[in-house]
Each structure stands twice: as structure tokens, then as C-alpha cells.
Design a binder for these strands. Structure first.
Lengths: 221, 221
DNA sequence: GTCTATATTTCGATAGAC
DNA sequence: GTCTATCGAAATATAGAC
């Protein structure tokens, strides 16, 4: 019985240290980029000697790869709201809410992902070509069904998805710019709510999934 | 006459070499990030010895600063379409077209800017707090007038601007992802046109500046 | 203005005691 | 599993001949 117990304890230590290192790495990679990040900076942020990082993660690239995969999987789960929704108002509405929530709670991961894609996806190109492509085509099919059912206007599904990604992730990736234009203060709870509602309103109205607001419903050219 | 002539010739050489170096630097900074970029890579891309870069730009950071300022000024000029427009359809429509065109023609500059902002704007924070803030408040005022005149729905002007920036720049910053989802091929002329029209259509419809397309105008809940 | 050679620093990674 | 000391590679920047 002692062997499994020792192994279990060692595993617990390993799991906890990996968690601490990954959190520190996510922040440093987001703030300095892969090239600008140093193992020393990550070690300091994690409160560990630099050599310990190499004990848990053989190379800087392996550590980086784990960070990128983390945010990617979080985003994939957010798409659950998309499926089984009766229509675009519920499906796309819930997806925007989920993505905005992730932008607020995981701004570092979002930035690491953006940086990785901007640099040509050197370490996650295979994910783009397999998992992301399949995910995208699946949602494109759902959007096409909604269009065919007359529940939204016949917009291009791919460009709609790009708009959803762009608008929601912008609040994480360009959060520093938004904060500066907000008088140097981070968005409050109320402002995050307003941002989410603004995105939902413009997109859902823009694709014809909800009616135009009353005060403009009698629009004339 | 010989002194001014020599000076002029020297200036011409300087200007041309700076142009070559800046173009090479923009590409390398975009593809590798500030930390990942090396003076050697930039020199190779420019076809010059590394020492010549330091002759024209004292430090790597000074060279980087010039690249960031370049794209920022291009974007500022694109906003001319915003002003003197009679309404949101013309103003915002032209702005989207101009920004999409920049995303296509200056993808490297867009990525360098995105990377700079994501890392907390270490070298252009003053621009954000002065020029960008003034530019933004000026356009917010224009949008408010359009809303007051009943030419568009009462959306939050700041969040609308963020949406315009996010959607248009996404085609440059995440161009690699879009290309991958497009079967590994860059967007064609036709596809860029479709992307621009898609963004314009959803946004202008979403803010109530154009009527809903005919086939959905008799929407019922 | 151009270019080769090099000084100096810093980083990723490892050795080896504990 | 932890940590100090250090190696070797690579980077920025400069010196100095042409």
C-alpha cells in the first residue's frame, strides 16, 4: 500500500507545481511574448528557482505549448452554448456571453493565443488544421440551418464567426487600450455587462435575429 | 552649390536606406515579436550588414518605435472618411472599407500594433493617452450627433468603435487563422470584397442605420 | 557611409550536491 | 524533488579599418 501512496503524494506535488508554473508562464508570455519571456522571469513570478522549471518542463517551448493548449480548450468548451440552441438568439447570444466572460477571466491566455496566431501559429498549426477546422465547419452548418429556417438573415457564416471571435477577444487582447480610453480604469462590472449587451445587440440585430428596437422600427430612407 | 548638393544626396541615401530597413523591420517584428526579432534577421531581410542598422537606428527599440508610429498614422488618416460624412451609412461604411483595405495592404503593421498594445503599450503609451484619446472622443461626438438626429439606434459609441477596430483588424492580425480555415489559401479579391460587405452589412444593420433586408423585414417574434 | 571583427551581456539549459 | 553554480550559444551594440 505504501507504493501507491508515495506515488500519489508525488503526483499531487507535481500537479500543484505544474499549476503554479503554468499560471506564471501564462502571465509572462502574455505580457512579454514568447521571445521576450525568459525562464528567469517565469521562475520569479512562480516563486521557484529557475532550474525547477526545467525539471517540470524540459524546454521553454514545451511550457509555452501547454499554455496555448489551455486557452484553446477553454474556448472549445464555450461553444457548448452554440449547440442544442433552438435558434440564433439563444445560441449566438449565449456564445457571445461565454466568450466575453472568458475574455474577462482569462485575458492572459487570450493574448498568448493571439500572439501565437499572429506569428503564424508555429506550435499549434496542427490544431488549426484539425480541431478548429472541424469545430468551425460544424457551427457553419448550424448557422446555415438557422438561415434556411428563416430565423436569421442570409449572412456568410464564416465572416459571422470571425466577427464573434474578433469582437469578444478584442476586450481581452486590446484590454490595455480600452482601459486607457476608459480613463485608465479597468472596466467595472456594469461596463462589462454593457459591453456584452452592446455586442449582442448589434450582432443579433445585424443578422436579423431580433427585431430592430421600437424607436427606429419605422425607419424610412 | 556643392555643399547643399552633397547634403541632398546624402539625405536621399539616408531616406532610401531608412525606408528599406523600416519595411524589413515591420515584417520581422510582426512575424517574431519584439523579443523574438533580432537585428541580424532584420539586416538579412533588408540585405544590409547588421552594423548599418545601428548606423541608421541607434537601438532596436528606436527602430521598433518608428515602425509602430507608421501604422498608427496610417490608421489616423483612414478616419478622414469618418468626418464630413452626412450620416452613419456613408461615414461608418467608408471607415470600414478604409480599415479593411489597410488590413489587407499593411498586415505586418497591424500585427506590430496589436502586439505592442497586448504587451501594455510600453513604447506608445503616450500616443494612447493623447492622440488616440482625442481622436476617439471626437468620433464619439459625431456618433452621438447621428443618434440624436435619429439616423441610427442609440448604441454605445465607444463599444461601437471597439467593434469596428476589432472586426477590421481581425482580418490582418488573425489572417493566418482565416487563411488556414480557407483551405490554406489567402483570401481572393472576391473574398476580401465579401468580407468587407459582410462586416458593413451586419454593423450598419445592427446599429439601425440601414433597413433590414427585404426578405426578413416582416419579422415576427 | 560601409563593413568586419569583437566586446559584453543575457539567455536556455544542465551538472551535481543536498 | 530542490537549488546553486556554471556552461555554451546567441543577442545587442560598438570599435575601427576602409
Amino acid at each position: 500500500m505504501s507504493a501507491p501512496e508515495r506515488l500519489s503524494k508525488r503526483d499531487a506535488i507535481r500537479r500543484e507545481n505544474e499549476r503554479i508554473i503554468l499560471a506564471a508562464a501564462e502571465k509572462v508570455f502574455a505580457e512579454a511574448g514568447f521571445g521576450g519571456a525568459t525562464m528567469q522571469l517565469i521562475a520569479d513570478m512562480a516563486g521557484l528557482p529557475k532550474a525547477n522549471l526545467h525539471y517540470y518542463f524540459a524546454t521553454k517551448e514545451e511550457l509555452y505549448r501547454r499554455v496555448v493548449r489551455q486557452i484553446f480548450e477553454i474556448w472549445l468548451h464555450a461553444a457548448d452554448s452554440f449547440d442544442n440552441a433552438p435558434g440564433p438568439v439563444e445560441g449566438i447570444g449565449a456564445y457571445i456571453e461565454a466568450k466575453m466572460d472568458i475574455s474577462r477571466r482569462h485575458p492572459f491566455g487570450s493574448k498568448v493565443w493571439a500572439s501565437e496566431v499572429m506569428h503564424g501559429a508555429p506550435v499549434i498549426q496542427d490544431y488549426l488544421e484539425t480541431t478548429l477546422r472541424e469545430w468551425t465547419e460544424g457551427r457553419v452548418a448550424v448557422i446555415r440551418r438557422w438561415i434556411a429556417a428563416g430565423r436569421m438573415a442570409p449572412v456568410d457564416p464564416h465572416h459571422l464567426l470571425y466577427m464573434l471571435w474578433a469582437t469578444t477577444q478584442h476586450y481581452a487582447d486590446f484590454g490595455h487600450q480600452i482601459e486607457t480610453l476608459n480613463g485608465g480604469r479597468a472596466l467595472s462590472d456594469r461596463q462589462w455587462k454593457a459591453a456584452t449587451e452592446s455586442v449582442k445587440s448589434i450582432v443579433l440585430t445585424g443578422i436579423g435575429a431580433v427585431p430592430r428596437p421600437e424607436d427606429l422600427s419605422n425607419w424610412t430612407s
